[in-house]
Nucleic acid binder design. Structure first.
Length: 818
RNA sequence: GCCGAAGUGGUGGAAUUGGUAGACGCGCUGGAUUCAAAAUCCAGUGUCCGCAAGGACGUGCCGGUUCGAGUCCGGCCUUCGGUACCA
């Protein structure tokens, strides 16, 4: 009989939904596990293989925990705001709200067809006023604490998306993450969240969480903490000074010139008459250069002399001040002291423009390079001479602090999070601008500031909300001024995803989230999502969690205790995308093979964290497997009815075939447990296939009790991986109640794992010359006797002297002979 | 350039602490069943030599440590991610 997957899967999906099988009792905390998958972005496209690969195996892990008796919470929701819906609206005229709601409905249907154990009562979508109301509330809290502020800043502006992008959203080649257009710089007044306030803690916290090392390293580099000093340099001709940041204050004696960023405010002030023209020209060039040109490390250094000089505070020498685009206004103080002797970029620059080079750290004798970055004794440095780099740093900082011209400083690469977006489809910023009162927060009882439906989102730059007069014009809540205006920008959607895991716990709650539940259920035990979120989402969420802790809403430091990234499924080596026209549609496979087979195949393909290239050739293998499993169960229909199944068997009472079955069942029980727990689904499936092969061969030769014993274990183990098949098998075996309503998971019988005989490999000089079967745990003498009886072994040691023999119990006997 | 991960049969991939390389699946070959085919079942399948017993070679390349290396060490090559002058 062919496995009627369609009928079976529909039946169980209906049953689970009607009986709310997966509704989690959040008050039951005894063995609670929060298993979270990154929520779905409901763009126009349907669920693709990548979604399945993310959600299917994660659900299998959650189901495994459930069968082990844990109270598992696994929610799913919709990250519903964002640019693609709005761009789609501009193209088609379909309102983002309408298309998003429609997409969510389609996606929900598809998600349900997967048969995951989501708690649908916890479902949320971020474009719901009941959700984004709390984005606004959190914004106000951040504002209250001085962590949300507005400043005029050069921002990354995507001319195609008509919006500001966070640094994280600008790709390495200077293009927009979403549309690939080259990003420009533009000055705008923007809202920022002060994530830098938490820079140190975000760095230190990485040590406490169980995340992939690679991801932690990426965050570490992104935060980019560097310790150094700020040093004040006086100008030679003016009564002015400026401050630079350096990580190498010990090299101060080697500072032979200075470089200011072309945008540095001092540049125009200090440039001497004869150099003004050249400086102006260079500044213009830099401004018009695209980000990609400016930041290319490959290109030659450029720069212009200002004509002005600074005074090196330790040598009292006059040193020239240049401007160059390799010094960035956005990092440190926008000015550096150049030490060509110990810095490669400075060396290159000095060589090109014929500037003075002084080594202040003695390179090793065999060093033939240019700038020397390593450790060594200080030279040409007066009172620092002879000290190593660390000691010299300490001493010079003391000296600078004493003279009051410098101090120890820590700098971060991390910058504040720019959250303003000049777009429609997002959370309105809850601020009112009043000509008398300035920025006025919208009072809490007036939240949410609802996003109006009636808006011309086909704007040509600027915020679409600015076009809607009834939205914009309000009375100032503070002074009653009738000419106050709402802020017309919306928030970055990463705000939405920074705290959604807390809202899931009670999505209808009348406060931002239920703190009691949050403290009971977070940190999330297991978070699963794409590695592309390594710095943005995962850093912002950590920042939010720490802020929420500081205002007393959660009592933990980190949102996600354990993190796993699923690998990427490619097609012919390329990422699946509409533009490449290589998207594999799961629906065809679901129709032909069912959800279980498709999920099993994705898990069986290879290691979960590596992903892989899609190839549909192998899916017939998992289909055959499922067919054979079902046939096996059907052959033993109702076997458990009226039968007493023992927990263990006495091995001595079993026939050879029974022993073989008993051992394989228990080996599998042990292995599958460990493998699923560690997201190694491919080997778990392989192990179950091995068990099936064993059962096909020998189960009919076993007594009925052992048959039932084996089959109930098989059903329980296959259930997390192929849930519909698992439930069906359980019922076929004669049980009345579904497995996932009455979780069952088995422990291995340790005694069954032992073997009577082992095959020992016999090596002569490390090469295998024979394999002999020996009783388990045989002594060296016993094995030796058997080894020397072997003809082939004798042949290979004939005429040689045995120098040494090595015996590894139950594994190897190696003879070294010359 | 720098940082990270990975390179194993025709193919996707398995291999505790160094200890029988290639589990499991796909594909392929042969057989059973069938009027025939599909489906299913059984057997075989790293390469080369050999009728066989057996032997030689095999985990990207070169070298090393070891009785023994896919696994450890040194030096390369390739692919894929991340990053982009951070002073």
């Amino acid at each position: 009989m062919k496995y009627p997957f369609e009928q079976v899967e529909t039946k169980w999906q209906k049953y689970w939904e009607e009986n709310k099988t997966y509704k989690t009792d959040l008050t039951d905390l005894e063995k609670s596990i929060y298993c979270l998958v990154m929520f779905i972005y409901p763009s126009g496209a349907k669920l693709h293989c990548g979604h399945w690969y993310n959600y299917g195996p994660t659900d299998s892990w959650a189901r495994y925990k459930k069968l082990k008796g844990f109270n598992v919470f696994e929610p799913m929701g919709y990250d519903a705001f964002g640019l693609p819906a709005e761009n789609y609206a501009i193209k088609t005229g379909i309102h983002p709200y309408d298309s998003t709601i429609k997409n969510i409905e389609d996606i929900r249907t598809q998600l349900k067809r997967m048969g995951n154990m989501y708690d649908w009562d916890a479902e949320l979508m971020t474009c719901d006023p009941e959700y984004y109301k709390w984005n606004q509330w959190l914004f106000l809290k951040l504002y209250e604490k001085g962590l949300a502020y507005r400043k005029n800043a050069p921002v990354n502006w995507c001319p195609s998306c008509n919006t500001v992008l966070a640094n994280e959203q600008v790709l390495g080649d200077g293009t927009c993450e979403r549309c690939g257009t080259f990003v420009e710089q533009k000055n705008l007044t923007q809202w920022f969240f002060k994530i830098t306030e938490y820079a140190d803690e975000l760095l230190e916290g990485l040590e406490k969480i169980d995340w992939p090392e690679k991801t932690k390293l990426m965050q570490k580099n992104w935060i980019g903490k560097s310790t150094g000093a700020e040093v004040e340099f006086k100008l030679d001709a003016h009564d002015e000074s400026f401050v630079i940041f350096t990580t190498r204050p010990d090299t101060l004696f080697g500072a032979t010139y200075m470089v200011l960023s072309p945008e540095h405010p001092l540049v125009n002030k200090i440039t001497t008459e004869g150099n003004k023209e050249a400086i102006k020209k260079y500044q213009d060039e830099v401004k018009s250069k695209s980000e990609i040109d400016r930041t290319s490390t490959a290109k030659e250094k450029t720069g212009v002399f200002t004509g002005a000089y600074a005074v090196n505070p330790v040598t009292d020498e006059k040193i020239p001040i240049w401007i160059a685009d390799y010094v960035l206004m956005t990092y440190g103080t926008g000015a550096i002291m150049a030490v060509p002797g110990q810095d490669e970029r400075d060396w290159e620059f000095a060589e090109k423009f014929d500037l003075n080079i002084v080594r202040t750290v003695e390179p090793p004798e065999d060093f033939d390079g240019k700038a020397y970055l390593g450790d060594g004794p200080a030279i040409n440095s007066d009172f620092l001479n002879g000290l190593n780099v660390d000691d010299a740093k300490k001493k010079i900082i003391e000296w600078l602090e004493e003279k009051n011209i410098g101090k120890k400083t820590i700098n971060f690469r991390l910058r504040d999070w720019l959250i303003s977006r000049q777009r429609y489809w997002g959370t309105p910023i809850p601020i009112i601008h009043c000509e008398h009162c300035g920025e006025v927060p919208v009072p809490e009882d007036q939240l949410p500031v609802e996003l109006p439906y009636d808006v011309d989102f086909k704007h040509d730059g600027g915020s679409p909300l600015a076009q809607n007069a009834s939205f914009v014009n309000v009375t100032c809540p503070k002074c009653g001024n009738k000419n106050a205006k709402r802020d017309v920008d919306t928030m970055d959607t990463f705000v939405d995803s920074s705290w959604y895991y807390l809202r899931y716990l009670n999505p209808k709650f009348d406060k931002v989230f239920d703190s009691n539940l949050a403290n009971a259920w977070t940190p999330v035990d297991q978070y699963v999502g794409g590695a592309e979120h390594a710095v943005m989402h995962l850093l912002y969420a950590r920042f939010f969690h720490k802020f929420l802790r500081d205002i007393g809403l959660v009592n933990s430091d980190e949102p996600f205790q354990k993190l796993i990234h699923q690998g990427t499924i490619t097609n012919q080596g390329a990422k699946m995308s509409k533009s490449k026209n290589n998207v594999v549609n799961p629906d065809d496979f679901i129709m032909n093979y069912g959800a279980d087979v498709f999920r099993l195949y994705l898990m069986f393909m290879g290691p979960y964290e590596l992903g892989g290239d899609w190839n549909d050739k192998g899916i017939v293998g998992t289909d055959r497997f499922v067919q054979r499993v079902f046939t096996l169960f059907k052959e033993h229909e109702n076997i458990t009815k009226g039968l007493t199944i023992p927990d263990t068997f006495e091995i001595k009472d079993l026939s050879e075939e029974e022993k073989s079955v008993y051992r394989k069942v228990n080996q599998t029980v042990q292995k599958v447990d460990v493998e699923i727990d560690n997201f190694r689904f491919n080997t778990a499936v392989a192990q179950l296939m091995e068990l099936l092969n064993e059962l096909t061969k020998n189960l009919s030769k076993c007594k009925k009790e052992l048959q039932a014993y084996s089959l109930i274990r098989f059903a329980s183990m296959i259930a997390p991986l192929a849930p519909h098949l698992g439930e069906e098998s359980w019922i076929v075996l004669g049980y009345d109640k579904p497995l996932f309503e009455n979780p069952v998971w088995f422990e291995a019988d340790e005694k069954a794992l032992t073997v009577d005989t082992v095959t020992i490999a016999v090596q002569v000089m490390g090469k295998i010359r024979a394999k002999i079967d020996m009783p388990f745990d045989s002594s060296e003498e016993e094995v030796k006797e058997a080894v020397y009886k072997n003809e082939n072994v004798q042949k290979h040691i004939d005429g040689k002297n045995v120098i040494k023999e090595i015996y590894v119990k139950n594994k190897i006997y190696n003879i070294v002979a010359k």
